[in-house]
């Protein structure tokens, strides 16, 4: 990623400036911002550092342990009592039986493939569609541009749920009810993503573009050689979120899909839960099949995500 990030905000990191150690409580947090300088660790005293890490670990446990707990349940064998008041956190004899059994109960792997297909269509559609439209809105003059921009903006005040019924009727009219394409299509170009890409393209200095125009560059050349290299941060955030959004989505595929053969993972999991609740190990294994891939994906791409955040990709 280039260091040309016009919207990058300066972040105050702590560093020593000879201030005395702060008092406990919220003051500790406030005082942190007053220190200035380079990179900033080593600035807090050992006491503050310990307290910070203690709090971080506490929150970590609070936010992560339910997932670990579910993972543990999914690995426990049928012989192990999971209903006692004090179940053990680690499985006594870890087994993958539940994963095999969940696949016998519902076609969980083909559900995962279905989710993947939908997510792939949505990611590709947004990467191409939102980029092109964002670029056109930011940098090209054409008739109706203003009207389109107003249209895109207007969709922002419309929660997706409001039009979901009509959207379903539209998809049904296209003959795509109960198909994966029908699930993927409406989200394949996100209106918000178009606007985000437009903002990113607008942040490129106009002069760079004008210089290229004088040199006789076509719009396509300008998009590829000037535009794209400068919006990689935003593009990566958009595609990461497009994938996560499609993979996690529940309401829309629940409405579109009918045949259990075609379910995506989230709809399949709710189906599993509704039908076979007598053994919690199975839904546990099912949820892990949905959860683990997305977490690995996010963890491996988090650098791009957090860099995009610093560039202003996330405002809400």
């Amino acid at each position: 990623m280039p260091d040309v990030t016009p919207r990058a905000a300066p972040r105050p990191h702590g560093a020593p400036d000879g201030e005395p150690e702060p008092e406990p409580g919220p003051s500790r947090q406030a005082s942190r911002t007053r220190r200035r300088g380079r990179d900033g660790f080593g600035s807090p005293g050992p006491g503050e550092l310990v307290l910070r890490y203690a709090l971080l670990v506490l929150v970590l446990l609070l936010l992560i342990s339910p997932f670990l707990w579910q993972l543990s349940t999914s690995l426990k064998s049928l012989n192990e009592d999971i209903y006692t008041g004090t179940p053990s956190f680690l499985p006594e004899q870890p087994t993958l039986d539940n994963y095999a059994q969940v696949a016998e109960t519902i076609p969980v792997w083909s559900y995962a493939v279905n989710s993947l297909i939908v997510a792939a269509i949505v990611v590709l559609g947004n990467a191409a569609g939102a980029t092109l439209a964002g670029y056109a809105l930011a940098r090209l003059r054409f008739r109706g541009a203003k009207l389109l921009l107003v249209g895109f903006l207007a969709t922002l005040v419309l929660p997706g749920e409001v039009t979901i019924i009509s959207q379903y009727i539209t998809v049904r009219g296209l003959g795509l009810a109960d198909t994966l394409l029908g699930v993927a299509l409406p989200g394949a170009i996100g209106m918000l993503n178009v606007l985000l890409m437009r903002t990113a393209f607008q942040a490129i200095p106009q002069e760079t573009d004008e210089a290229a125009v004088i040199d006789g560059a076509t719009p396509w050349q300008r998009l590829i050689h000037i535009g794209l290299p400068n919006v990689r941060g935003m593009l990566s955030v958009i595609t990461i979120f497009a994938f996560i959004g499609a993979w996690d989505d529940f309401l829309w595929p629940l409405i579109v899909l009918n045949d259990p053969e075609n379910f995506t993972l989230t709809v399949g999991l709710q189906y599993l839960n509704g039908t076979f609740t007598n053994n919690p190990r199975l839904p546990a294994a099912g949820t892990m099949i949905s959860f683990i891939p997305i977490v690995i994906l996010f963890a491996s791409l988090q650098r791009f995500f957090f860099r995009g955040v610093e560039e202003g990709a996330i405002k809400g």
């Binding site: 339910p66 997932f67 707990w69 579910q70 996560i244 993979w247 996690d248 989505d249 529940f250 993972l265 989230t266 999991l269 709710q270 839960n273 839904p283 099912g286 949820t287 949905s290 959860f291 997305i294 977490v295 996010f298």
Partner: peptide
């Protein structure tokens, strides 16, 4: 990042 469905099933 986790789906609301996954989280709700855990809950």
């Amino acid at each position: 990042v986790a789906s609301a469905v996954v989280v709700a099933l855990i809950w």
